[in-house]
Write a protein that binds this DNA or RNA. Structure first.
Lengths: 164, 164
DNA sequence: CACAAATATTTTAGGTTTGAAATATTTTCA
DNA sequence: TGAAAATATTTCAAACCTAAAATATTTGTG
């Protein structure tokens, strides 16, 4: 705790100005992220008859054309294992991804895009980028860079400590 | 569209550098917001045996001590009506809020904190602010202000148009 | 007044999400 | 080798969340 923080602390449970500024920042992040997510969810539903979580899975698989394990997928998306199971099930039912067995490990399976999945995602990704750019049309190039820099700092500090 | 944007547009569906910067900014917002939300969810569960959505409802009601209608609550939290019904049901079961009839309008009801709800929330809010400040401990006062300014711009641009 | 339109909320169906338990398989090591 | 530990995934129960339909009530209008 630095000097000005220490000075502003009192008995009884008051909190510092810095702490309050950080709380405001967090609430603002939450507000923007909910608003944008809601807009994108609606567009996704109306234009593609699909959902954001499915789009996220397709995006991850599009970056790894040889496919990913379920566990890699859930780690990359930062959601639980059980969650990915259901989303992949639906994408399989839609014919956009397939599950393939892994040589020498019958516990695991590799998920990858079908040709239809690749084609659909490529189209959707372009449209999606346009939506985002529209929703952020007040964000200048400089502010975008500043935003990314500040948020990366926060991300890095909260990076999950990896086991060796 | 400004000159450099126009110059970087091509036939066929390429997108501008600015559009890509905005997309990166959005993905970074999403990443931070998921990470922080996950951390807070876990702390909320372990320390209070509760959840973020319930905390959010309590927070809204703490700001409006005379209570709010279900519709005001869902508008303020930016979630659907039906969603709030379930969360309030659970808070009622826990004894933290009550539903009261509205004079002259039997369709509506006012939700407000019980004394136990006020007491519990006041305690939790202090702890919560501490968690947030820790999670954002790399965020300087200046960066917090910059972040808030930039995000407010985005919020305002995407403000729901109100009906008169 | 009657009755259509508007409003406030709940209910419903379908999907997303978590954490924990269950299942299946592989690896480790005594 | 063979039991225990570790790993990969699915299943499960409970909660959250949305959009749309249903219910109940109030308001506006001919």
């Amino acid at each position: 705790m630095n000097k000005s923080e220490a000075l502003s602390e009192r008995a009884g449970n008051e909190t510092s100005d810095l702490s309050k500024a950080r709380l405001r920042a967090w609430l603002q992040i939450l507000k923007v992220s909910r608003k944008i997510e809601g807009e994108l969810r609606e567009k996704m539903r109306l234009e593609f008859g699909s959902t954001l979580p499915r789009f996220d899975v397709l995006a991850a698989l599009y970056r790894e054309r040889d496919g990913m394990r379920m566990s890699e997928l859930s780690k990359s998306l930062m959601v639980s294992n059980g969650n990915v199971t259901g989303i992949v099930d639906r994408l399989v039912a839609e014919g956009l991804v397939v599950r393939m067995p892994v040589e020498n490990d019958r516990r695991a399976s590799i998920v990858r895009l079908t040709p239809a999945g690749e084609k659909d995602f490529a189209e959707r990704a372009l449209v999606h980028e346009g939506w985002v750019s529209d929703l952020f049309s007040d964000l200048s190039s400089g502010d975008a860079d500043a935003l990314i820099r500040i948020l990366r700092n926060i991300s890095h500090h909260n990076e999950a400590p990896h086991h060796d």
